[in-house]
Design a protein around this nucleic acid. Structure first.
Lengths: 125, 125
DNA sequence: GATTCATATTCCTTGGAAGGAATGTTACCG
DNA sequence: CGGTAACATTCCTTCCAAGGAATATGAATC
């Protein structure tokens, strides 16, 4: 992944919001939809864009697709630096903070449901 | 300048090369041309793009246009963080290092000429 | 096996960015 | 004041990205 490709991934607001959520951990598409409140096709296409460039990886978990950032060892210096920078930059931004708050509420509602279902998974409820 | 606008400025290789040079200090258009070896119109348009978004400022110096990053106080947290990140990211990149080397050679050739002309300016010779 | 849920893909339109050729503008210089 | 040097802008074409509607795929469930 070239440096300019990293920036291309970062130059759309929806993608920034997606990555902001992924900095908290893996997430399935339906949760992106709930938190971002954007149409399914929009979310899905941006995830496809990021995946095609190696910025995220996706794995199927039964009926759901879980997306995550590449794991630590697979992250280039440039990617690590830019993800850290992104996290610092969004820290005081209202939109991104609201997204994180919604994500936290979702996790709270989600985890018990997962326990009930006996999956132990926070996703997908 | 919104965060996403910063990334939009960064998502083109020519603009990255321009900003890499500007991290060393102000520069005139003709020097961008010499270092980057790209056509005048290309340089000029990318500088216009950056200027329109507040990423650089331009000032006329006689016959020349000098471009520079906004000065310290005018830089937002996001901009400071991303410029630092950019500088770190390009530090080991061959293309960007070559540009800096060319810039250094240009300054060496340029400064004496400026002295001879009695301007004391490194730009434009 | 038909249905349903979650997600992806296709097809379309629209807009914006990139690049080059040509031309315009501004300042300096004789 | 005509010319020239340094940049900017316009006009054009090409390409890619974004978004939505509709449709397809793949897994689970009955």
């Amino acid at each position: 992944m070239k440096l300019v490709e990293i920036y291309q991934c970062l130059c759309d607001e929806t993608r920034l919001r997606i990555l902001n959520l992924l900095l908290q951990g893996p997430l399935c598409v339906c949760h992106f939809q709930e938190v971002l409140r954007e149409p399914q096709v929009k979310i899905s296409k941006h995830l496809g864009y990021l995946k095609a460039r190696g910025m995220v990886k996706g794995s199927r978990e039964g009926n759901w697709m879980i997306y995550a950032l590449p794991n630590g060892r697979a992250r280039s210096r440039e990617l690590v630096a830019n993800l850290a920078c992104l996290q610092e930059c969004v820290a005081e931004n209202a939109l991104f903070k609201r997204d994180l708050a919604r994500l936290a509420r979702l996790d709270l509602a989600c985890a018990p449901a997962a326990v009930v279902r006996g999956t132990g998974k926070a996703c997908c409820c």
